[in-house]
Design a protein around this nucleic acid. Sequence first.
DNA 1: GTGCTCCATTTTTTT
DNA 2: AATGGAGCAC
Length: 790
Amino acid sequence: MNTSNPNVPDLFGGKDMSDYLAELNERQAEAVLHADGPLLIIAGAGSGKTRVLTYRIAQLLASKKAWASQILALTFTNKAAREMRERIEHIIGEEANRLWMGTFHSLFTRILRMEAEHIGFQADFSIYDSDDSDRVVKGILQELGMDPREIKPKQIRFRISSAKNQMIGPEEYATKWVQSSIDDITAQVYKIYNNRLKQSNAMDFDDLLIKPIELFETHPEILEKYQDRFKYIMIDEYQDTNRAQYIVTKMLAAKHENICVVGDDAQSIYSFRGADISNILSFKDDYATATQISLEQNYRSTQSILKCADAVIKQNKKQLEKTLWTQNNKGNPITLLDNFSEREEAQRVADHIRKIHLTEGYRFNEIAILYRTNYQSRVFEESLRRKDVPYQLVGGVSFYQRKEVKDVIAYLRLLVNPNDEEAVLRVINEPARGIGMKSLQTLVSTARVKEIPVWEVLSNPVYVADVYKPAQAKIREFIELMNESREQLPHKALVDTTRDLLEKTGYVKQFVEENTAESLGRRENVMELLNAISYFERSRENASLSAFLQEVSLVSDVDNMEENVPAVTLMTVHASKGLEFPVVFVVGMEEELFPMGGRNGEEADIEEERRLFYVAITRAQKELYFSFARSRYRFGEEKPGIRSRFLDEVDPAVVRNENGSTIKQKSDTTDHRPSGSFIEYDYTKPLNAGYPGATPPPDSAASSSPKRRTIYTRNGQGATNAPSTNMGISYESAETEHLKPGVFVMHEKFGAGKILQREGQGADTKLVVFFQNHGQKKLALKFAKLRILS
DNA sequence: GTGCTCCATTTTTTT
DNA sequence: AATGGAGCAC
């Protein structure tokens, strides 16, 4: 234990900070110990930046430079924040809970709720997701007499969002940015859209970043309060911040200038949502005194993987100079799978997963399949299911985007915030209760004329009297029901209020009556939502409905990814940012898919796609596979697939075909074996010699494996939690079931052998194995890395 | 005002 | 292939 460093004060419980520093390399330690003044950390993939951030915060706390509540740490996902907080808690204890650590969106929502009144909002404002925004835009277009089929609400919303991201308000947009008719429409809609959101006491995702700036600009004393509070600011994934994020953090840091940003320009992959790479490139211009530290030692991947990644990213012109290096092993070559169709691709990947699981002992949760677009997951789900490989899908159509779930959420939003117009319009006739379009139109236009919220119009008998008689009573009932539920809110459990409301509205009943597979599925989802509410209530101190709604609107897909479920992870490359897996399959390596958007083929776009590919490659620790299909269904139509240009950019020295041959690249004229050719396994060779490729004959592995219970989880759908524990047990045993007397195995050190005996249970299971060259050995199942030679 | 049928659109990537 | 919307018939 080194206590000689005067910069490193003692910590609680014997283990002090220097023990942690000893785990760091020089550059990392420098970053950790740099407390005051602006700091730019360029952190290459797998260079241990999370560790640096964690220790840096721990160090700030240990050296009493700041209280936990004075540190603002902005992460890219809630999951990242959660994990970092846990690690810090492990080092310095419960104090970690007082850190301001989370995503931009969640932390600034917190501030906005506290300060809402200063910018003309109420604390319980609703948060509109993109879907809500689309519907608002659509409504506005219709009110302006435009046809939403001709002018796509999504397109207008996208433009508004881009404007917001660049901090262009509706007035400025109208005066300076109108060049075409679509701009003109956008300008009109933008203005109304903003007013409508305000009237609805609602903010969209962009507002959550912009409104704080507005708040700070108009209320310098409030800005000062937060400047004083946040003595130290840290921002992770800085290469993916947008203009608003850049400005708001700059404002907050202006006083102390203790701002530390961490990022990697090579991993900037979110420009489509306004991320501006120049934020990180020009950090040193903003802070003249900034220190820059580059972390270039990679601890994650094998040399082969790193070499491949390096060859790819070198093709980009725009990038900061840096060279990643590693002390890790060379590792196995990367395997390229060449497939006839997407179905074959999925099957082959599933086969390979089974193979490495059985023969090399990789557990399923050490394996990930990464793709460019969510829709690609489908075929993989099918193939994995068919082969009894458990998987976990991250992202896709998320649970909270399902219509029935959104409906119920809208009911709840309406309880918290009656002015939430989007919620009113969504549920007032859901299920159908005889309040039709026409009545609604009348009432909504009254609301517009009087400039009051729709809810007020609906609550006012004078206005309601204007509409179709039978609808009047229905409207009254609806309003009363909602008011009653709202009054219940403080007195009853949230689940009970919700269940009650669903019962009275007959929302669930409609699904039961319909009684189709689909409607029952919807009912299930609603029940699952009730579970989520109940769980939220039980796990929080002050679980308000408002807090629940906030949480569900700000969760990201990766946030509720399960780490300890023994299941293969399926997700987009975007979602995989910041994660790592021993084994990675990057699939769908085809033109128009990865890279995508070859239509205009702008070099900037291609460079971003390339960075995305770089991110995909650098997720892998030990084994990496690429695959592509020569034909693929798109919009229900079979289209030829052309091998991705990116496969011509990888270093051919580290990539092999399945049969071990060198891959063919564009400039390369040598023939390669046709896809789908099988070669025999040769397990007598040591692990790294050659590359035993090829898919085993379809049924050899599959039919001999015992039938096991498989649980498939779709992320966020709730089924993940309950069964996972059972799953763990059933899988561990299933996996080791193969290791029984009579089976031939291969041991890393002792070579080939035969199992003679199996003793003990569970974690203590031991195997007696006879090795040809080393005789009889007794091995703990847990530690012996045995491959089966069957 | 509701419900059914046909058709059009969808697939980037996400807080 | 699947979903959701618009248009039409009741």
